[in-house]
Protein backbone atom coordinates (compact mmCIF):
# COMPACT_ATOMS: atom_id res chain seq x y z
CA UNK A 1 0.00 0.00 0.00
CA UNK A 2 2.81 2.39 0.80
CA UNK A 3 4.32 1.80 -2.60
CA UNK A 4 1.34 3.20 -4.50
CA UNK A 5 2.51 6.86 -4.69
CA UNK A 6 5.91 5.75 -5.91
CA UNK A 7 4.32 3.69 -8.66
CA UNK A 8 2.05 6.56 -9.62
CA UNK A 9 4.98 8.93 -9.89
CA UNK A 10 7.01 6.43 -11.90
CA UNK A 11 4.18 5.72 -14.29
CA UNK A 12 3.56 9.42 -14.79
CA UNK A 13 7.22 9.85 -15.61
CA UNK A 14 7.13 6.99 -18.10
CA UNK A 15 4.00 8.34 -19.77
CA UNK A 16 5.53 11.79 -20.13
CA UNK A 17 8.74 10.34 -21.54
CA UNK A 18 6.77 8.29 -24.05
CA UNK A 19 4.88 11.36 -25.18
CA UNK A 20 8.17 13.21 -25.55
CA UNK A 21 9.49 10.38 -27.72
CA UNK A 22 6.35 10.57 -29.85
CA UNK A 23 6.79 14.24 -30.56
CA UNK A 24 10.52 14.09 -31.06
CA UNK A 25 10.27 11.11 -33.38
CA UNK A 26 7.35 12.35 -35.44
CA UNK A 27 8.63 15.89 -35.91
CA UNK A 28 11.36 15.00 -38.47
CA UNK A 29 8.66 13.51 -40.72
CA UNK A 30 7.75 17.08 -41.62
CA UNK A 31 11.28 17.94 -42.66
CA UNK A 32 13.28 17.17 -45.75
CA UNK A 33 15.50 14.36 -44.48
CA UNK A 34 15.98 11.22 -46.52
CA UNK A 35 13.42 8.45 -46.35
CA UNK A 36 15.52 6.02 -44.35
CA UNK A 37 16.40 8.69 -41.79
CA UNK A 38 12.70 9.28 -41.30
CA UNK A 39 12.21 5.58 -40.78
CA UNK A 40 14.86 5.63 -38.06
CA UNK A 41 13.03 8.43 -36.27
CA UNK A 42 9.71 6.70 -36.75
CA UNK A 43 11.15 3.67 -35.00
CA UNK A 44 12.04 5.85 -32.03
CA UNK A 45 8.57 7.35 -31.87
CA UNK A 46 6.29 4.46 -32.58
CA UNK A 47 8.10 1.49 -31.14
CA UNK A 48 10.09 2.82 -28.23
CA UNK A 49 7.82 5.69 -27.23
CA UNK A 50 4.70 3.57 -27.33
CA UNK A 51 6.44 0.83 -25.37
CA UNK A 52 7.30 3.38 -22.67
CA UNK A 53 3.67 4.50 -22.57
CA UNK A 54 2.44 0.94 -22.24
CA UNK A 55 4.86 0.33 -19.38
CA UNK A 56 3.52 3.41 -17.66
CA UNK A 57 -0.05 2.23 -18.07
CA UNK A 58 0.97 -1.22 -16.83
CA UNK A 59 2.33 0.27 -13.63
CA UNK A 60 -0.71 2.40 -12.97
CA UNK A 61 -3.69 0.26 -13.96
CA UNK A 62 -2.76 -3.29 -13.19
CA UNK A 63 -6.23 -4.76 -13.52
CA UNK A 64 -5.90 -5.09 -17.27
CA UNK A 65 -2.40 -6.51 -17.36
CA UNK A 66 -3.01 -9.35 -19.85
CA UNK A 67 -4.31 -6.91 -22.41
CA UNK A 68 -1.46 -4.46 -21.94
CA UNK A 69 1.15 -7.21 -22.01
CA UNK A 70 -0.25 -8.55 -25.26
CA UNK A 71 -0.27 -5.04 -26.68
CA UNK A 72 3.36 -4.55 -25.64
CA UNK A 73 4.42 -7.81 -27.25
CA UNK A 74 2.64 -7.24 -30.53
CA UNK A 75 3.68 -3.61 -30.67
CA UNK A 76 7.38 -4.25 -30.28
CA UNK A 77 7.57 -7.19 -32.64
CA UNK A 78 5.27 -5.96 -35.38
CA UNK A 79 6.40 -2.38 -35.47
CA UNK A 80 10.05 -3.33 -35.69
CA UNK A 81 9.50 -5.82 -38.47
CA UNK A 82 7.27 -3.30 -40.16
CA UNK A 83 10.05 -0.73 -40.27
CA UNK A 84 12.27 -3.35 -41.86
CA UNK A 85 9.64 -4.24 -44.46
CA UNK A 86 9.08 -0.60 -45.40
CA UNK A 87 12.82 -0.02 -45.74
CA UNK A 88 13.32 -3.08 -47.93
CA UNK A 89 10.31 -2.40 -50.13
CA UNK A 90 11.23 1.22 -50.71
CA UNK A 91 14.82 0.28 -51.56
CA UNK A 92 13.74 -2.20 -54.20
CA UNK A 93 12.56 0.56 -56.50
CA UNK A 94 14.19 0.06 -59.90
CA UNK A 95 15.88 3.43 -60.52
CA UNK A 96 15.26 6.70 -58.73
Amino acid sequence: MTLAPVFNLLSGLLLALGLLFWFAGTWPMLGRASYLTKLHYLGVADTLGSALMLLGLLLRFNREWPLLLLALLSLVVWNTIFGYVLAVCSQARPRS
Partner: peptide
Amino acid sequence: WHRLAALASVST
Protein backbone atom coordinates in the same frame (compact mmCIF):
# COMPACT_ATOMS: atom_id res chain seq x y z
CA TRP B 1 6.28 5.76 -49.55
CA HIS B 2 6.28 8.77 -47.28
CA ARG B 3 2.52 8.55 -47.26
CA LEU B 4 2.61 4.87 -46.35
CA ALA B 5 5.00 5.44 -43.47
CA ALA B 6 2.84 8.27 -42.16
CA LEU B 7 -0.29 6.13 -42.40
CA ALA B 8 1.40 3.36 -40.42
CA SER B 9 2.30 5.92 -37.79
CA VAL B 10 -1.34 7.05 -37.66
CA SER B 11 -2.45 3.45 -37.21
CA THR B 12 -0.12 2.83 -34.28
